[in-house]
Nucleic acid binder design. Sequence first.
DNA 1: AATGGATAGTCAATAGATTTGACTATTTCC
DNA 2: GGAAATAGTCAAATCTATTGACTATCCATT
Lengths: 158, 158
Amino acid sequence: MTESKPWFEDVAMPALLRHARTTYGVAMRRALANAGYDDIPRNGLYVIGGMAMGAAGVPLGRLIEDLRVSKQAAGQLIDTLVLRGYLERAVDGEDRRKLTVTLTERGRAAAAAQAAAREQIDAVLTARVGEEDISRARRTLAALIEMGHGEEDEDDGH
Amino acid sequence: MTESKPWFEDVAMPALLRHARTTYGVAMRRALANAGYDDIPRNGLYVIGGMAMGAAGVPLGRLIEDLRVSKQAAGQLIDTLVLRGYLERAVDGEDRRKLTVTLTERGRAAAAAQAAAREQIDAVLTARVGEEDISRARRTLAALIEMGHGEEDEDDGH
DNA sequence: AATGGATAGTCAATAGATTTGACTATTTCC
DNA sequence: GGAAATAGTCAAATCTATTGACTATCCATT
């Protein structure tokens, strides 16, 4: 019985998601370290990576939501990334309470290295399973994510 | 232009994976908290959830690998889970260096609550995208995970 | 234009999680 | 039997995240 059930059949979805993400995480961290960026904190990858597209900079509030951490944690994370030269803070012109973070030169370089690593994984994956499966997988993940919005905090409407 | 590009098109894969996992994480934590299990540490969900199938218990070494943490961190995680009544340690009969952790009564109850929450998400997702897409997505994730093995530590073969 | 309320973020202290370094016990391989 | 490898622990230090209290800005009344 050489053709038994594939190993992942009875691995729970959250575990699959976790390990899949790890593949990216490991590759990106290695690429960054090789390029000299070896001082990026836990959620730093998300911050730096997520800002490449948003080009103009990301509002701190958005990071807080996305990361699902307290605003203090987010602020502290930004602190260290600023301190280490990856980010700059900037106050919003419209609303001076609001804060926006943008990549520095170093930050853009790190983001590029990270994106390259990510894209390389993407490319290998595409070669393995094909465009079609990837775009389907993305849609499935998106559906999952959308399910998470809405009933978030159904405390007990007073 | 009501039908523009779907929002997830230009979200990087690691971010999709992260957020998708968050959907499960939030739901599972809520279910556990409602059932009185609100003292489970960060990686605790993985440990408890992952042991439901392995029934007989999980070797500590496997957890260390899966979680990608130091053995000290794993040991400490197990410590708190034992302390809080979810797990029991047991030495392997064959090799008395080795440790295996098994669920206690409380641990099994928590695992059940967690699995129920997970399966509920699975069910809703199935209703949304269909069996086919899910099993394809699982295969894609598995491919990704497999890519992560092999070139793990290519230090510089001495 | 004053005031009250909501929103955005900071500061300081603490708790929680992870790592590094040094050590013990057990097994495996000459 | 002894060296080397493996499995895990103990203790200290570091990094990350949370809670609670506070400041600044904005918005909406009056």
